[in-house]
Nucleic acid binder design. Structure first.
Length: 493
RNA sequence: CGGGGUGUAGCGUAGCCCGGUAUCGCGCCACAUUUGGGAUGUGGAGGUCGUAGGUUCGAAUCCUGCCACCCCGACCA
C-alpha cells in the first residue's frame, strides 16, 4: 500500500479514481469499460441493496427476473425508446464458436448465425411489457408491482468506475396500473423512496424534480429524478422514476377489461437506481485521507485496533476487546477486532481511514491501566479518550454512530446549500458556472432550443425542474422570454 | 470515431534524442531490533522492456505494422 492519496483540490478525478482502487472498492477488468467490484466495494452495494429491497417490499413490490437477452425486434416497438438506446446496444449475432483452420485460435462459426439477433438489455421495458401482455387481462390483475435486480449493458464511449461503466448493476421496477393517476402516484412514491434512501442511509441530500424534455427517458411521458451535488461542484443524477403513460402498453398491446366492461390500455411506470450510487457516495463525502462512509452503509462500523508489546499485553487487550465486541453486537453494531500482528497500529489507522470505517477504537497499555479507550471519528478525524467506567459502551457507540451519520449529512447539506446559486442575468450565469460551479437556479423559457443553446455555450444542462419550485414570474436567463419558475442548471456527471 | 499521449518486475517510474541485456521507490520474502499515527537495518527473490516484423556484429533505444490503455471532444444512469 503506497502512501498518500492525490489531493481533491489538485486533481479531483485522479483523486476519485485512485480512491476507488486503493480503498478496494473496484478496479478495471480485462474487458474494456467493465469493472470488477471487489469484496469491500460489493459489501457496500449489498447494504444498499438490502435496504432498498426492504423499502420496495414495504411498498408492495415483489422481485422477479427477466432475461438478459431481448429480441432485436422488441426494441423497435416503441419509437422513442429505440431511438434512445439503439446507439449503445451490444448485439448477439451467433451462438457457436469453432476452431480456426490452423487450429491456433477460436473463431465465430459463420454457420451459427442467429435468425433474429438478440440485444443485451440496456433496460428491460420491452421484454417485460411483452410478458405483461400475458399477465394482464382484467382490472383484477392490477396493479402489477414488480422489481428486478439485474445487470444491464450500455456500450459507452468513455467509462469511469461506478459512474459510467459498460455493464452495471441496478434494480429496475416495472409497474402497471389501471389509471393514469395511480401510475403517476406510483412514480412519485418511488421517487420518494429513493430520496428517503439517499438522505437517510447515504447521508446524501437530493433535489427531487422532473426532467426537461431533453433529458427525459426514452419512452417516458415524464421522468422524475433525484439530483445530488458532488464536492467538485458537478451534479449527479442518483435515481430516476418514469411515468410511462400508455406508451409501452400500446407498443405491446397490453389491455385490460375495466370494471365497467370496457377495454383499455394499462398505465406504466419504471424506476431504477444503479451502482452509480456508489460513485455518488464516494464523491459526496470522502476526503483526502480516503473514504468517508455513513455508518448505515459501512460494512464495518467500528474497528478495534490493539496496541501492545508483549503477548501478555495482547491477551489482556483481546479480552477487553471481546467484551466490548459482545456488547456492541447486542445493538447490531458491526465490529472488527484487527488482531493482525503483521501490521503496526499506525499503518492500520491509515488503512481504516482510507476505507472509511466510521469509528475506530484503539486500546493500549495505558488504556488497560486507566480502564479507558481512545475513540476516533472518521468524519471529523477527532479523537477522545473515554473512561469506560463512565459510560455504557454499547450506548456510547450507537449514539456516536448516529451522530456521525447526522454530521455527514449536515455537512453535505450545507455544502449543497453553499453550491446553489440564484442567478438572474446571463453574465452572472456564465461567471458562476465557470468560477463556482454547483447548481444555478435560474429562469428558463421552457423550450428545448434554449436548453440546447445553453448546453452548447456552457456545458451546463437542466438537472431538473424542482418539485418544490416556487411560482415566480421572471425572464429566461438566455432569451429573456417570460418564465414562471426557476429550474436547476449544472454541469453534470 | 476525430485530436493528443503512454506501454519497462505486483504497482509507480529512469533509461530512448546520442544503440552495448536495465535504474530507483513502494510492495514481496528472511532475520534482527521495533509497536500510542503509514518503523529501521541487513540480506534476498522477482523482467520474453505491449506485440509482430525490419535495420544492425549488437535494439528497451532507430524504422514499419498491429494491439492495449489514458487524456481531450461528439453520446449517456
Amino acid at each position: 500500500m503506497s502512501k498518500g492519496l492525490p489531493k481533491r483540490s489538485e486533481d479531483y478525478s485522479l483523486w476519485y479514481n485512485e480512491l476507488v482502487k486503493r480503498a478496494d472498492l473496484a478496479e478495471n477488468s480485462a474487458v474494456r469499460g467493465c469493472m470488477v467490484i471487489k469484496p469491500y466495494g460489493y459489501s457496500i452495494w449489498e447494504k444498499m441493496q438490502a435496504q432498498l429491497d426492504k423499502m420496495f417490499k414495504e411498498t408492495g413490490h415483489s422481485n422477479a427476473y427477466f432475461p438478459l437477452f431481448i429480441p432485436k425486434s422488441f426494441l423497435s416497438k416503441e419509437a422513442s425508446h429505440v431511438e434512445g438506446f439503439a446507439k449503445e446496444c451490444a448485439v448477439v449475432t451467433h451462438y457457436r464458436l469453432k476452431n480456426s483452420d490452423d487450429g491456433k485460435s477460436v473463431i465465430v462459426d459463420p454457420d451459427a448465425k442467429l435468425e433474429e439477433e438478440l440485444i443485451v438489455r440496456p433496460t428491460s421495458e420491452t421484454v417485460i411489457w411483452s410478458t405483461y401482455k400475458n399477465w394482464i387481462q382484467s382490472y383484477r390483475d392490477l396493479p402489477l408491482l414488480v422489481n428486478q435486480w439485474a445487470n444491464v449493458v450500455r456500450w459507452e464511449m468513455r467509462t469511469r468506475l461506478f459512474l459510467r461503466t459498460t455493464e452495471f448493476l441496478w434494480q429496475e421496477g416495472h409497474t402497471a396500473h389501471a389509471t393514469r393517476q395511480e401510475a403517476i402516484d406510483e412514480t412519485v412514491q418511488m421517487l420518494n423512496v429513493y430520496a428517503t434512501f439517499a438522505e437517510t442511509f447515504m447521508a446524501l441530500p437530493v433535489v427531487k424534480g422532473v426532467k426537461s424534455a431533453n433529458e427525459r427517458f426514452a419512452g417516458a411521458e415524464d421522468t422524475y429524478c433525484i439530483e445530488a451535488m458532488m464536492q467538485d461542484g458537478k451534479a449527479l443524477q442518483a435515481g430516476t422514476s418514469h411515468f410511462l403513460g400508455q406508451n409501452f402498453a400500446k407498443a405491446f398491446d397490453v389491455k385490460f377489461a375495466t370494471k365497467e366492461g370496457g377495454l383499455e390500455h394499462v398505465w406504466g411506470t419504471s424506476w431504477g437506481v444503479s451502482t452509480r450510487l456508489m460513485g455518488a457516495l464516494i464523491m459526496a463525502h470522502s476526503d483526502d485521507n480516503g473514504l468517508v462512509l455513513p455508518p448505515k452503509l459501512a460494512p464495518i462500523q467500528v474497528v478495534i485496533v490493539p496496541i501492545y508489546k508483549t503477548d501478555e499485553e495482547f491477551d489482556k487487550i483481546a479480552n477487553k476487546a471481546n467484551e466490548i465486541t459482545k456488547k456492541l453486537l447486542t445493538k447490531g453494531v458491526s465490529v472488527h477486532f484487527d488482531k493482525r500482528d503483521t501490521h503496526k497500529p499506525g499503518w492500520k489507522f491509515a488503512e481504516y481511514e482510507l476505507k472509511g470505517v466510521p469509528l475506530r477504537i484503539a486500546m493500549g497499555p495505558r488504556d488497560l491501566e486507566n480502564n479507558t479507550i481512545e475513540v476516533a471519528r472518521r468524519d471529523t478525524l477527532s479523537k477522545e479518550t473515554v473512561d469506560l467506567a463512565q459510560i455504557q459502551i454499547e450506548d456510547y457507540v450507537t449514539e456516536m454512530l448516529d451522530k456521525i451519520q447526522e454530521t455527514i449529512y449536515q455537512k453535505a447539506f450545507d455544502f449543497r446549500k453553499e453550491m446553489t446559486t440564484e442567478v438572474n442575468t446571463w453574465d452572472e450565469f456564465l461567471d458562476k458556472i465557470e468560477s463556482k460551479g454547483g447548481f444555478l437556479s435560474a429562469h428558463w423559457d421552457g423550450t428545448s432550443e434554449t436548453e440546447e443553446k445553453i448546453k452548447e455555450l456552457t456545458k451546463a444542462t437542466i438537472r431538473c425542474i424542482p418539485l418544490d419550485q416556487n411560482e415566480e414570474q421572471g425572464n429566461c436567463i438566455l432569451t429573456g422570454n417570460p418564465s414562471s419558475g426557476r429550474v436547476l442548471f449544472a454541469r453534470a456527471y
